[in-house]
Computed example of a mutant assay.
Amino acid sequence: MNGTALVDVIIEAPEWEAVNLDVIAGRACSAVLAELGLDSERFEIAILACDDTRIAELNTDFRGKPHPTNVLSWPAEEIELPTGQSPELPHPDPDGPPVELGDIAIAYETCAREAENQGKPFSDHVSHLLVHATLHLLGFDHINDPDAAHMEAIETRILATMGIPDPY
């Protein structure tokens, strides 16, 4: 149960070429699954490493917000979330194929700008955003205060296991 999540990174923006995103993503996504007691090798996640222009298009198309954002996520399945609690987690068949959790898009310019403005190493900020997005794929959310507090506590705990300070 301590393998690496099956993460497929598609690099669309050339700025991401200089970043070891495969390693960062594998580590971040696996840390989420491990924290939740899930076998990392039984799940797949697709990540689009794009630029602000592309993520603004996606943000417009899917959220009606015509501007760039740092990260977006699309769970493979809709999951009901009891307020302030964890969603029911998936349990893949150990003999079946890995479960597709969903897709993540992450924008280079926004991530770089935020990391610089917050005085954080770029890789730590990207790791945090990928932890955050992976939790969304599993049904966690931050729509209301109890859900936000629950999700942030889990993120902070996961990041600590990765040696990354509390981003909040």
Rank of each mutant, 00 (worst) to 15 (best):
P87H: 14
W74V: 06
P90D: 08
E100V: 13
E88A: 14
A112Q: 11
D95R: 00
G102K: 03
E77A: 09
Q85W: 02
P90S: 08
A76Y: 01
A76V: 00
P97D: 13
E100Q: 15
I104V: 10
P75Y: 01
P98N: 05
S86D: 12
L89T: 02
C111R: 09
E88T: 15
P97T: 08
R113F: 15
T110K: 12
S86K: 11
R113Y: 14
P75M: 00
P92T: 00
G96I: 03
P92M: 00
Q85I: 01
V99M: 05
T83C: 08
P98R: 04
L81R: 15
I79N: 07
T110F: 10
V99K: 05
S86H: 08
E88V: 14
A105P: 09
E100F: 10
T83V: 14
P82F: 04
R113C: 09
A112L: 09
L89Y: 11
D95P: 01
I104E: 05
P92K: 00
E109G: 14
A107I: 06
E88M: 11
P90N: 09
T83I: 12
A76W: 00
A112I: 11
S73A: 14
P94A: 05
A105H: 09
E100T: 15
L81M: 11
E77M: 08
I106M: 09
P75N: 07
C111Q: 15
E78M: 12
E109I: 08
P94D: 10
P97K: 06
G102Q: 05
G102S: 07
D103I: 08
V99E: 06
G96M: 01
C111L: 13
P87W: 13
T110Q: 14
G96H: 02
S73C: 10
I79K: 07
E100N: 12
L89F: 10
E78V: 12
Y108F: 13
P90K: 10
P82R: 01
S73G: 14
E100C: 09
T83P: 15
H91R: 08
T110R: 14
R113S: 14
I79Y: 00
L81E: 12
W74M: 06
E78G: 12
D103C: 12
P75T: 01
A112F: 11
P82T: 03
L81S: 10
S86I: 03
D103K: 05
W74E: 03
E78D: 13
P97H: 07
A105Q: 07
A105L: 10
E109K: 10
P90A: 02
V99W: 04
L81H: 09
I104Q: 04
H91F: 03
A112P: 07
Y108M: 06
P92C: 00
I104R: 01
H91A: 07
P90G: 05
P82H: 02
T110I: 11
R113N: 08
I104G: 03
T83K: 12
L101K: 01
G96R: 01
P94I: 04
G84K: 03
Y108Q: 05
E88Q: 14
E88D: 15
Q85S: 10
D93H: 03
S73V: 02
P92W: 04
P82G: 06
I104S: 05
P82A: 05
P98L: 00
E109D: 13
L89K: 04
I106P: 09
E78I: 15
E77L: 03
A107D: 05
P94K: 02
L81N: 13
P75F: 01
R113K: 15
L89C: 03
D95I: 04
